[in-house]
Amino acid sequence: MSADNIWLYRRRRAINLIALVLGAAATLFGLFWLGWILWVTLVKGFTALGPMLFTHSTPPPPGAGGGLANAFLGSLIVNSIALAVGVPVGIGAGMWLAEYAKHGKLGGVIRFLNDILLSAPSIVLGLFIYTILVKVVGHFSALAGGLALALIVLPIVVRTTDEMLKLVPSTMREAALSLGIPQWKVVMQILFRSARAGVITGILLALARISGETAPLLFTALNNQYWSSNLLKPIATVPVVIFQFALSPYAGWHALAWAGALVITLFILTLSLLSRLILSRSKVTHD
């Protein structure tokens, strides 16, 4: 080997080493932020956690005492509306895409637009519901908040239903149809059953996503300082209360905001772990 070749060889090895070290460093860098953010949320959240959090409503300024009970109720109501509207429609649309429009043009267009809706800025979805509902009716409401979140649930459920139904082997379809079972029964009672674990995963992920959504609720559900379960009135939700409290100058409100942040973060992490678990388990049984 000539001297030139040795240098070339060493140079290539050095570049390779640098690139691989940088790659590992980038991964550590990404995990570092995850660790930092979770750590801060845990520490600040736990110090603010108290027994009153779930039993008392949001306090007036300067925010000593009190809890987030009304906000938890509000989030429960608004998220339930979102799931009640978004999940059936999403499953229906997903079934249509997978069973009736596998290769069609309209199916392609809807699949394409659904993927765009999946990443569309959520604040614009809030504006949409504001213009068609809040402005027409004349007041903010829990219902409007739920519908705005349903628009976020919808594309997630459509996508997972579509993909999970596509994974069902076509022999199962053919076997069922050859027995003379009508197609709606094939889809609902055979194919859907086999894809159910995946669809549930999608629903859990959608719930995780909307539990932390703030932007679309700001001008649909608005906020409410008091205990309210009226669907046609403004309602407090955890993310919006966190937003309001965190940007306030009061220390008591800040503490409550951190406590709320801790609760929704833990909730969301639990949901995503749960959905992973269901998916990995269903994979084993499906094959």
Partner: peptide
Amino acid sequence: NDRLFRWVLLSCAMLVLLALLGAVAST
């Protein structure tokens, strides 16, 4: 029933289309 089922599913899919177009049009 099959026709009905198909129409229900199609209208669900159309809602996806409507949501996106509606967001553009309303803003």
